[in-house]
Structures are given as C-alpha cells and as structure tokens.
Simulated assay, not measured.
Amino acid sequence: MSDWMLTYAAVMTGIVVMTIVFLMVWAKRLEKERGRIRGNVYKGGFLSAEEFQRDWISMRANGRKGAAGYKYEDGPGCYVIESFPIGTENPDFEHPHEVYVGQSLHICNRVRNHLNGKGNGDVYADVREGKPVFVHLERCEETQMNDLERRLIDAFHATESYNSTRGGAQRR
C-alpha cells in the first residue's frame, strides 16, 4: 500500500472511531434526559381515570366538597395516559402496558374526552374494557406545548404504543 492510502485509511478509521464515540455519548445524554423527564412526571404523580372522572366537577380532597374540580382548573399543557392489564393492583408507572401522550389548550377537557370515547380510540378501549388507566397532567405555557409533548413522547417511547406521531404538530 502506498503512503497516501495508509494515511487515508488512518484518517477514515479516526473519523469512524470519533463518530462512534460521539454517538455513544449522545445516546447516553439522551437516555439521561428521558430519565429526568420521566422522573419529573413520576414525582408529579398519576391519578386514576376513576378519580379524574369523579373529581370532574368538584374535588373531594380531605372530605371537603365544593372545591373546584378539573373542569374548572383547565388550561394549556400536556398529559400522559398510561394503562395496565386487567388485574394489575400496584402498577409500575415506569413500565406501563400502553401509553398515550397529548397536548391541548384545555388539557383536563381533552383527557376527559379520551376517557369518554371522544378522543384516542385505544385509550377509550382500555377504559371500556376495565383496564387500570392513569392520568398525569403537565401544565405549561402555550408556547412550550409542542416541545414538551415531543419530549414526553420520546421519554415514554409513546410511538411504540398509542401515539402514531412524534408530536408537536400544532403551530403555536
């Protein structure tokens, strides 16, 4: 082999090695970001679909009736809906059976629509079949909704479940 061919092979090998290292570092950072996002959602907690529906008009926290319910606390944001197989008593929210992520200017109303058959048909099928379904609401400014939805879909691998797109399709 000539000197220029050896030099070319060495340069190409170096480029390939640097590319692999870069991709490994990038993948590790991406997974760390996914974990951080999921952690924030888990910290905020999930609410069962039954509790959400029950508290639509008024909250019953601490036995008090009459406090404003989700219907009156509506606003912009994103939501995560997780479902589990029938018979699941203590769901592992980090490993849902199915997941759906969405956004809305009126997240509470939108989640209620999904639970009542006026939204994602897969989510409603889970509710109708009696599967344990849980909701997490993530409020944000209208201008942040697309980015947050994309990040939640990615973090929860929702395109491998009920989401058919990567999100953020609305112009905001």
Rank of each mutant, 00 (worst) to 15 (best):
M1K: 09
M1W: 09
D3T: 10
L6A: 10
L6Q: 09
A9Y: 01
A10N: 11
M18A: 15
I20A: 14
I20N: 12
V25M: 04
V25F: 00
E31D: 15
I37M: 13
I37E: 11
G39D: 06
Y42K: 15
G45I: 14
L47I: 12
L47A: 07
E50T: 14
Q53V: 10
Q53A: 07
Q53C: 08
W56I: 09
W56G: 03
N62H: 05
K65H: 10
G66K: 08
A67V: 00
G69V: 09
D74L: 05
G75V: 01
G77S: 05
I81C: 00
G87C: 09
E94T: 13
H95K: 12
E98P: 03
V99Y: 11
G102A: 10
Q103W: 01
Q103K: 12
S104R: 00
N109W: 04
R110E: 02
V111P: 08
N113T: 03
H114L: 15
L115M: 12
N116H: 12
N116R: 11
G119H: 06
G119E: 03
G119P: 06
G121K: 14
D122K: 01
Y124M: 02
A125V: 08
D126C: 02
V127Y: 01
V127M: 10
R128N: 08
E129N: 07
P132V: 01
V133P: 00
F134C: 12
H136C: 09
E138R: 07
L148M: 15
E149Q: 11
R151N: 01
R151Q: 01
F156W: 11
T159Y: 03
E160R: 15
E160V: 10
S161L: 06
N163D: 02
N163A: 11
N163M: 06
S164A: 11
T165R: 00
R166W: 12
G168W: 07
R171H: 03
